[in-house]
Structure formats: structure tokens, C-alpha cells
Design a binder for these strands. Structure first.
Lengths: 347, 347
DNA sequence: CTGAAAGCGCTTACAG
DNA sequence: CTGAAAGCGCTTACAG
């Protein structure tokens, strides 16, 4: 019934309660004590507001106060646990601060990315979290121009404050586990990501660190940066298996999408993956339960998100700077059992 | 440099181009032809706007036009492919219409749900898609009161237009496949969801339809509605296996979260699931690759989303009404192979 | 203690 | 063809 045709405004409340718009505004914003407004008046106003079903128009308020209560996050896509986890922590932090969280994905497309960032900026988001942007410097400039505070997450921007995972350290640790678990004499192979890309390069470096420490040299043909499509990873695996009928026994998989490709391959060719051990720099509950030893490096989404909000909350003018968060080894009970068995089995 | 301290407004452009705010507005909105504005003037204005780095303040425009360009979607959470798929299609449809999509999750919590819906309403979203709400009637009333168009997705509202999956039909078909694939004499069991809940009840009915058609009666002890926590499903499976050392061979799993529980169980007790066949009313690429025959019923996210926008676009005053979308059987190549083998194996 | 008034940045009839 | 003016719904010094 109530708000069908016409929205209730503070003027309606003023009229109905025999006061003025100023008074209504003061009361409804809780600043009536500061302005020494009569408690009775305040009461009457709140009463009337409630009975009329008043709801403030945030758009109008924002126009006046220059705040929107909106905060934005831009992510590559929604289809994995890492981004989903980031989004959920971000939502929680936003709610804590009374902000309305907006999330938009780019599908890893530059044009889409620019267009969604422009939209968020035009919507006057108060700050922006950019997760693994395709074009960090470009959108950094857009934000700068709009005077909008922003953080880069997972991929550092040249000029923006950034929060990243310790990719090299994590990959090194993951590599060490892979070495420990792989059968002796195993071949090793790195799959996924994109050559020249920040995270991929660091993970390759960490992978190499681990192998080098064990006296194994990393050759170019042990690295297949086949991007983020599961099918591409699957194709690489098929090619590798075609050589000798079986996969290299020590597989380092760079992303959950590549892991998806591995999972499909495995389902079709279980025998080719007989003695394989997989290390994956990402996490997914189903992937963790594949029927072979799997070690996963899980990015610390809670800490990553918290670091972004710490920076945003501080409101310093600080440009640049970087916070690095350690990822965590994730081993399911089942895998722990398998890993333990595998360890005994190896000399 | 440019917009550092002060935003550029149409007044700045008017001054800089020697015109008026009205003209600037008309030009920038593309209605200059309609108003017969001199092409030269228009040119000059656009030029100036560009060089000043002008960006319209959508908040101010919205206050005037009573449009915000915002559309909202409320989902239970982000952690599975169904909701993620819905979100991605929704984003695409929103972009097509020049709208800025807002997505917020409730974590299946009533209070959170009400609070996020209130926030979206206060932000003046132009319409709202409510995915599997906890309290359909309550938030339906909130939207109604705010005069905001809305659709229920996946769970019908008593008074709202709704788009749902054909749960019973889908479950019946899934059940038929389960029967066809399970070894003869297999026991059947339904796991997951909540008793009394819309989708769960319909899926149980569909499951029963399939068994009944094969002359198998469904007893209460064949149904375990253990909710949406993977650990609960895992506990149920452990209990079932404890009885005879093995799982019922025909498992009907109601959600991907329950399937997660199954996946963990399987990793720990592969032998207990020896001859099992699993039918899951949900989809995930990793789950589809588990090392046993899996048939999944995948909800048609594209069609579900499209149906919501069709309704929203139509802008009829229609209350109520329901569109039902058929889900699709999803079988991976690996499972097709396994299923084929399984079929031959059974008498 | 409370009201009148200006102004946030736009759009859009209305004059001219 | 173009400008002056009103108004969207709020907030907040400023008077009184």
C-alpha cells in the first residue's frame, strides 16, 4: 500500500509531525542530541518516520555528503574457490563498515575490464579493489584520474598499493613437497599460467628453486605455460603422455583451471597417471580428493582481504607499496594418508 | 593531474565552451539532434568535455531521472558453480542493458538476507533477483513496499514472479539413470537438502517416482536430509558404511555440498564405495571426474537467468506466475566411458 | 531548541 | 537553436 506511487521524503515527515525538514534530518541521522533537539520532538519525528515507512534515499544523501556507501571489487571471474573466497571476505568486511559491496567480473578481457571500472567509478564507489587486473597500469590511471582510492590484489600495480601472495616462496615450498613425494627418478613438469605474467613467472622461479636445491636443472621443455583453459592443460597432458605412455611423475600445476584439465585427463587415462604426484598452486575441495597424492597451496584469502581493507581504512595518501602474504599448504586427511603411504613406499 | 581536487561538472564545461549547462547536458546525452542544437556547438562541447576529462555523476543524474542504473542479485553464497554461473550470466545480461550489477550473498542467514536487501533497496536498485531466499515472503514484502521490481530464482515466492528448475522432472530422470547404472539388487539412498524445503521435497518426489516405476518402494530410512554442510553428508555416509562395510550402491546426492562430503568420504574409504554409482542434482567439473560412475543434473543457468530478465524487461505489473526450466544431464567423456562399461557389466 | 536557505550535479520542460 | 529556472531528496552551517 504505502510506498506505491510516491516515495516518502523528509518533507512528508516534517509536515506530518509539524516540524521542518532540517529537524527531521537531524533526528533521523542521530545528531539530534548534538543539536539539542527536544527529546519529545525527536520522538515524534522518529515515530512518524516509522509509521510512514520512511527509507532514506541514499542517492540524494550521497549527492550532498559526497559519500555513496558503495565499494567495488573487480575480479577475473567467479568460477573458482580463490575468487569466491576473496569475494566473501570482501563482502563481510564491507558490511562491517556499513558499505554496500559491488563485485564485477571481467572474464579476463581488457575491454570489459575498462568498461566495468568506468562504470564503478561513475557510480562513485568510495574505493576499489582490483583483483588480478589484465591492465593494471591502465585502470590504475583511471582510478587516479577519478580520485578514487584503490588497491591491487594478487597482481601488483606499478603505481598502486598492492597486496600479493608470496608466489615464489609458496611455489618453492610446494616444489619441495613434490620432490619429497615423487618416486625417485621422477620427471618434473610445470603446467599452466602464462609466460611473462607476474604470478606465473614467480611460481616458475620457486619451482626451479626447489628443483635446483635438489640438484635438478630446469629445462625449458619442462615448462608448459598453456594459459587458463582446462582444455589446453588437458591437451598438454595428452601430448606428454603420448611420448612414453605415461605422465611425468612430478606435476606442478599452476592454477585450478589447469588442474581441471588434469582432472579430466585423469578420468580418461587413469593408467597414464599411475605413480603421479601432483602439486597445485591453488585449492579446491574436490581437486584435493582426487585419487592420487595431491598437495595444494592455498592462498590466504582472509589475510589478503584484510590487508586491502587495512590500507583502505588508513586513508593515508600513500601511493605504491606492497604487502606480501604467505599461502598455506592444504592437505586433506585422505591425502595425508596417501602421502604418508607414498613416503614409506619411496626409498 | 586533472580531477584531483575538484570534479569536473557540466558547469565547468559550459563555462569553458561558452555555452550553458542545459546545452552541455543535451549534447552529452545525445539528444542534441532532437533539440536541433548546432552541430558546431555540439562538437565544441564534446571536445571540451573530453579535454576536461568529464565523467557524469550518475548519482546526480539518478536523483533527477529517478533511475540509478543499478540492478541487484542476492545469492546464498559464492562457493559453487551453480551460483557462480548464475552470477556470470546475470552480469552479462546487466551489461547488455547498460546496468551496473550488484551481487550480495547472505550465507543462508535470514538476518543478513534482510539487511542486504534493505541496503540494495536503499541504493535504489531498479530491480532485484532473489536467488533461493531464506525468507521469500518477508523480502518479497520489503521489495513490494519499496516498489522495486523483483523475481525469485530457484525458489518460488508466494506472491512474486518466480523462475525455477524442474526439480521433480529432473530428479526423476536422474533417478532413472541411477537405476539403469546401479548393479542389480543395489540399495538406493538419498542424501542432502532439508526436509520440508521446496527443492529438496520435489527432488525426493522425483527420486521416488523413478524407484516406484521400477517397483521399488521408498522407505523413510532411505532418505537422509542432512543439510548443506559437506561434513554432515560425510558423517551420514560413514554411518551407512559402518552397517555393512560398504555404501548403498545407488546414491542420489541432492547438492554439490553433499557431493563434497561424498568426495571426502571416497578419498578416505575408496573400498567402501566399490560398486557405487552416484547421481548428483548439481554440477561441478571436478566432481564429474571422480573415479566412479557419476551422473549429474546440471541446472540451466543461462535459461534461468534469461527468463528472469525477460520478465524484468517486460515491465508488466504481473504479480506471481512461474516459469519452469528443465535441467540438463551432464556426463563427462570419462564418465560416459565408465557408464558404458558399467552398463555392460550389469546383467 | 528549530526553521529557512543554499547547494550537491544533473535533466527537462519552457521561453525566447 | 539555446539559456534560465525549477526541482530530484537530502545535509548543514547559519540565524534566530
Amino acid at each position: 500500500m504505502s510506498g506505491k506511487k510516491k516515495r516518502v521524503t523528509i518533507y512528508d515527515i516534517a509536515k506530518a509531525s509539524g516540524t521542518s525538514a532540517s529537524t527531521v534530518s537531524l533526528v533521523l541521522n542521530g545528531s539530534w542530541e548534538k543539536y539539542r533537539i527536544n527529546a519529545d520532538t525527536a520522538d515524534k519525528v522518529s515515530q512518524t518516520a516509522r509509521s510512514l515507512g520512511y527509507r532514506a534515499n541514499l542517492r540524494a544523501r550521497g549527492l550532498r555528503t559526497n559519500r555513496t556507501g558503495l565499494i567495488g571489487m573487480v575480479i577475473p571471474h567467479h568460477r573458482n574457490r580463490f575468487f569466491a573466497g576473496l569475494v566473501e571476505h570482501y563482502e563481510a568486511e564491507a558490511h562491517k563498515r556499513g558499505l554496500c559491496p559491488i563485485v564485477v567480473s571481467t572474464q579476463r578481457n581488457r575491454e570489459t575490464e575498462e568498461s566495468v571500472v568506468r562504470t564503478l567509478l561513475a557510480q562513485q564507489v568510495e574505493s576499489l579493489i582490483l583483483v588480478g587486473p589484465e591492465n593494471p597500469d591502465g585502470i590504475d590511471a583511471l582510478c587516479e584520474e577519478a580520485g578514487t582510492r584503490h588497491v591491487n590484489l594478487d597482481l601488483p600495480g606499478r603505481n598502486a598499493f598492492s597486496v600479493v601472495t608470496d608466489n615464489r616462496g609458496g611455489a618453492r615450498e610446494l616444489g619441495r613437497h613434490l620432490l619429497k613425494l615423487a618416486p625417485s627418478g621422477a620427471e618434473f613438469h610445470f603446467i599452466g599460467g602464462r609466460q611473462g605474467e607476474y604470478a606465473t613467472d614467480l611460481r616458475i622461479a620457486g619451482f626451479a628453486d626447489a628443483l635446483n636445491a635438489a640438484g635438478i636443472a630446469v629445462r625449458d621443455d619442462m615448462i608448459d605455460c598453456c594459459g587458463y583453459h582446462p582444455e589446453h592443460a588437458q591437451a598438454v597432458l595428452s601430448r606428454l603422455a603420448a611420448r612414453s605412455g605415461r605422465l611425468p611423475a612430478g606435476l606442478f600445476i599452476n592454477s585450478i583451471t589447469a588442474m581441471e584439465g588434469f582432472s579430466s585427463f585423469l578420468a580418461l587415462n587413469p593408467e597414464a597417471a599411475q605413480d603421479c604426484v601432483v602439486a597445485c598452486f591453488d585449492w579446491d575441495p574436490f581437486a584435493a580428493c582426487l585419487p592420487l597424492p595431491v598437495v595444494m597451496m592455498r592462498q590466504n584469502v582472509a589475510a589478503l582481504t584484510a590487508a586491502c581493507f587495512d590500507y583502505l581504512d588508513a586513508k593515508t595518501g600513500q601511493k605504491g607499496g606492497e604487502v606480501m602474504i604467505a599461502p598455506e599448504l592444504a592437505v586433506t586427511p585422505a591425502n595425508r594418508r596417501m602421502l604418508a603411504a607414498g613416503k614409506e613406499g619411496s626409498p
